[in-house]
Design a protein around this nucleic acid. Structure first.
Length: 225
DNA sequence: GGACAGATCGCCT
DNA sequence: GGCGATCTGTCCC
């Protein structure tokens, strides 16, 4: 058996254009180290692109630049964590182009599942027993991984000294062996339909941890094989 | 499976 | 002052 080691992503790994990065992240491992040393790991299975300037669904549409979205303009690999609906967080990572970022929408929990459960506090008995329910949404994964604006916003994921949050490549995981579903983004119905429909959401076909499956797109993939 | 209402507050206009 | 890149429970088919 060859020994294959997990490697942490570095600056050049993050230096990609938004769509390329969203696809590149699929299958990678997001790792969170808590203050008490506990480790939480999840495989990234769903991502979404938010482009700059021309993207009407993006916080940076029209070049808007405010204190909140400043991380979208910072170097590739910078965390953009913002609060929404007064009580939830969304976790993005800035890409190469200024003003663009990739939203992490879902993870498949791999390690620290009991800790994630304790953070999520799920009431529904069936969901409670299913790890796939822990991180299958952008704000759920923030709760499960203890990612908030206070502790992770503007963090540099390419900084090898940063031991709070980072991403590793899993050499045993080959994205080519999976189908990737390309579909429209979630929760942006109010923007001009052209941009609402744009296929800027990506997920690994067959993962049990997807926030919202697109059965039509999956059927088309089935037809092509 | 889908539709809908309510929670709740930082951010931007 | 109004509005969310969401989640949850409820109601209905």
């Amino acid at each position: 058996m060859n020994k294959v080691s997990f490697t942490r992503l570095i600056t050049e790994d993050f230096n990609r254009e938004c769509k390329d990065m969203a696809l590149y992240f699929l299958g990678k491992i997001l790792i969170r180290k808590l203050e008490d040393g506990r480790i939480l790991k999840g495989r990234i299975v769903e991502t979404e692109c938010y482009l700059g300037n021309e993207d009407k669904a993006s916080h940076s549409y029209g070049g808007r630049r405010t204190p909140r979205n400043e991380p979208m303009y910072m170097p590739a690999g910078t965390c953009y964590v913002y609060q929404t609906y007064g009580m939830y967080f969304c976790f993005n990572i800035s890409s190469k182009e200024s003003g663009a970022a990739v939203l992490l929408r879902a993870l498949e929990p791999l390690e620290g599942i009991d800790t994630m459960k304790s953070f999520r506090n799920i009431r529904n008995e069936k969901q409670k027993e299913n790890p796939h329910c822990l991180c299958n949404g952008p704000s759920k994964l923030c709760i499960a991984m203890d990612i908030s604006k206070d502790n992770c916003n503007k963090l540099d994921l390419s900084d090898q000294e940063n031991d709070m949050l980072w991403i590793e490549d899993d050499p045993n995981f080959k994205l080519e062996e999976f189908s990737v579903v390309e579909t429209s983004r979630i929760g942006i119905d109010k923007v001009e339909s052209e941009w609402a429909k744009m296929p800027l959401r990506f997920y690994i076909y067959g993962s049990g941890s997807i926030s919202k499956r697109d059965r039509k797109a999956e059927k088309l993939l089935d037809g092509n094989t």
